[in-house]
Computed example of a mutant assay.
Amino acid sequence: MPADYRDDLTIPAPVTRSVVITGASRGLGFASARRLYREGWTVIAAMRSLDPGLDELRRATGAANNDDRLIGVQLDLTDRASIDAAAEAIIAAVGAPYGLVHNAGISAAGMVEETPIDLWERMFTTNIFGPVALTRALLPSMRAAGRGRIVLVSSESGVRGMPATAPYSAVKGALERWGESMAGEVSPFGIGVTILVAGTYDTEIITDAGTTDSRDLTGPYARHHRTMDKRGRYAMKLAARSPDRFAAGLAKALDANAPFVRRPVGPDARMLLLANKIMPSVVMHHMIRAMMGIPRFGALRDNRSD
């Protein structure tokens, strides 16, 4: 369907407590889909690899193949035709969804100098442009229904720009500014927006398998990478929580009534938000630098003269 505003939509009668979750085949999306289905929601599980992902969700929830409370929708956020087809399928299945959870995304590691431009483009297409297109396609039905909640899953990288993950930090920061802007636009129609700042959870996205690695381990930032990799893996081992804990936070977020909410999910995210609120930016910069073992300002400067 076209993504332009549509006021002439014929919308089926809404199904009570329906929610669209993108990236539902794994990680936080999978855990959230399982939790919400068990709580009685009609779950529209949107994913790229539909058949294996939906089969796994059915096994996890005990849903039968013909269960109309667990609906699979194929969605590739980098493909506009796939987004439009998914929006049409969602509206045909449940009318206006009550919840729209933008969870799908990709991660990357590497310094700005190391990460290629096509990675930045893919990052923004998957994490921003695709979600915006899907939201635009579904908003007319949600406006007509006069209720709903859009949940944007951010992360600690959206609170502070983190070294060696600049594309990911940039896209999560953009996601939050989009959510803040959209909240003011849609709240008069009865639609709320929630930004969930996720802490560290034990999913594929924090592993090598779930991250596009552009690091040059022999280049000028090799010293950074060695220290940051060692400390980062140790920190993730200590901080990573079960995705089921995030799913509980998401379920609570969908019940919110405020027009705009930004809240952490996880103790590490909560601590970072608090520190970022009360500490000056320069203090936060040095604190993060010290935690990651990055040399002080000018330490690696080449002072040799020609």
Rank of each mutant, 00 (worst) to 15 (best):
A3K: 01
R6N: 03
D7E: 12
T10I: 08
I11T: 15
P12S: 04
T16Y: 03
V20F: 00
A24H: 05
L28N: 04
E39P: 00
I44N: 01
M47G: 09
M47P: 02
G53K: 07
L54K: 01
L54A: 01
L57T: 01
G62N: 09
A63M: 05
T78H: 12
T78S: 09
I83N: 05
A89R: 10
A89Q: 13
V94T: 14
G95E: 06
A96P: 10
G99F: 10
H102L: 11
N103F: 06
N103M: 05
S107M: 15
A109F: 14
E113S: 13
E113I: 15
E113V: 13
E114L: 11
I117K: 08
D118H: 15
E121V: 10
R122M: 07
M123W: 06
N127E: 06
I128Q: 06
G130A: 09
V132C: 05
A133K: 12
L134D: 01
L134Q: 03
L138E: 13
P140R: 08
P140W: 11
S141I: 02
S141C: 00
S141D: 08
A145S: 09
V151R: 15
V153N: 12
S154T: 11
S155W: 10
V159Q: 14
R160A: 08
G161M: 07
G161K: 11
M162Q: 13
A164V: 14
A164Y: 13
A166C: 10
E185C: 00
E185D: 13
E185G: 05
S187R: 06
P188T: 08
F189G: 01
G192R: 06
Y201H: 07
Y201P: 13
T203F: 02
T203K: 04
T207M: 06
T207I: 06
A209D: 07
G210H: 13
S214G: 09
H225K: 08
R233Q: 04
L238D: 04
A248Y: 01
A248H: 12
A248G: 02
K252L: 02
N257K: 09
A258W: 12
P259Y: 00
V261M: 05
R263W: 09
P264S: 15
P264Y: 04
L273R: 12
L273K: 08
L273T: 03
A275E: 07
N276G: 15
I288N: 02
A290C: 02
G293Y: 11
G293V: 12
G293N: 14
R296K: 12
A299C: 04
N303S: 14
D306Y: 13
